[in-house]
Simulated scan of single mutants.
Amino acid sequence: MQASPRKIIHVDMDAFYASVEQRDDAALRGKPVAVGHGARRGVVAAASYEARAFGVRSALPSVTALRRCPDLIFVPPRFEVYRAVSAQIHAIFAEFTDLIEPLALDEAYLDVTANRAGLETAWMTAKAIRARILEETGLTASAGVSYNKFLAKLASGRRKPNGQFAIQPHEGPAFIEALPVDKFHGVGPATAARMHALGIQTGADLKVWSLGDLQARFGKSGGWYYAIARGEDHRPVNVSRERKSSGSETTFDEDLVDPSRIEAGVLAMADDVWAWCEKTGRRARTVTVKIKWADFQQSTRSRSVASVVNSKPHLHEVSLELIRSVFPPEKGIRLVGVTLSNFTPTTEAAPASSLPLEPAS
């Protein structure tokens, strides 16, 4: 006997950061808002729907955003507020299911197959969740409902903002066949370009390819593309999904070549990351320094330690050694970032001096 299909909901808050700012400041409502810093070398972290109408998107340079929308209002990010609102939203999720996989502060997968709320359908469950979010936070959310994560994620973007869309089991394969491959979640621009070069424009084109041919062209990902072309995604909603890295980066007001100023930027980012470590109690083995050069080329330098990075001075030490590996810089440095990864399950305490540096594998 065939198992009953799962009931998966992908909930995605609508323009989350910008919506929180508009909620908290009535003067911003109905106006184009960008969360970020409007300085000459700033970057948009999030944009309201009013700003998006002008082509303003996250990661867009501030000068470009202002060129597209001269009336754009920049507000500095308040991540402590966004985290608090996110906690409210996740508490609402927990009223409906224990199977919650957070993807970010503003989105998550929910498996509601068990139907804790006793609602007739997953569609009604999604509506109830969105209504509770609006009631509790004053913010709107969109939702996708389907029988697997891949399709639920695709569905959540179909009725944005403040809407929901369902893809039922008998609809999944046809939905994917009609979808351009560059709209597939997880298929980035480079992969989409490779597919286009092979004549793969839509899910229907992808479905024609055999498993062996896709694996020959795309390696391990070939099996994934073969499955999703048929609407198949058996990944569970992973409630134990852990954050794999924590980082912070900054764009300088001008391209820097002075080592002392570059190092000051790296240390400031290391301090941001260590503050998160102190708050969460997490410790990691790998430090990565990111460098964006004046010509927008990027470089990274990584180092793993024998035990853990267990103090702010130790993080400073490793971060400085990494950035100093590019001194003297051959060209100006536009941005630096520091990231910790390779977290340990539990904190391992050891004197920093006993943790020799090793090349990252």
Rank of each mutant, 00 (worst) to 15 (best):
Q22S: 12
F150Q: 06
S156K: 10
A155W: 04
R40T: 05
W274G: 10
E136K: 12
T280C: 07
T300H: 05
T288L: 03
A270P: 00
A143C: 15
V309N: 13
D24R: 11
I291L: 15
P32V: 01
T113I: 09
K7D: 11
L357Y: 04
M1Y: 13
A104Y: 07
L267H: 03
G38C: 06
G281A: 08
A284P: 04
E177W: 11
P328G: 05
A155G: 02
P32I: 01
I73Q: 09
A306D: 02
P77Y: 01
W209S: 02
S304E: 08
L154D: 01
G223P: 09
A264R: 01
H234M: 11
D253A: 14
A152R: 04
S248Y: 14
R116C: 00
E21N: 06
P102K: 03
V181I: 14
L256W: 00
S354T: 13
K7P: 00
Q201F: 04
V257A: 12
Y226L: 03
V187M: 01
T300A: 04
L139C: 08
Q88Y: 01
P329N: 11
V63H: 13
V145L: 00
F74C: 04
S146T: 14
E136I: 11
G42E: 14
H314M: 14
F327P: 02
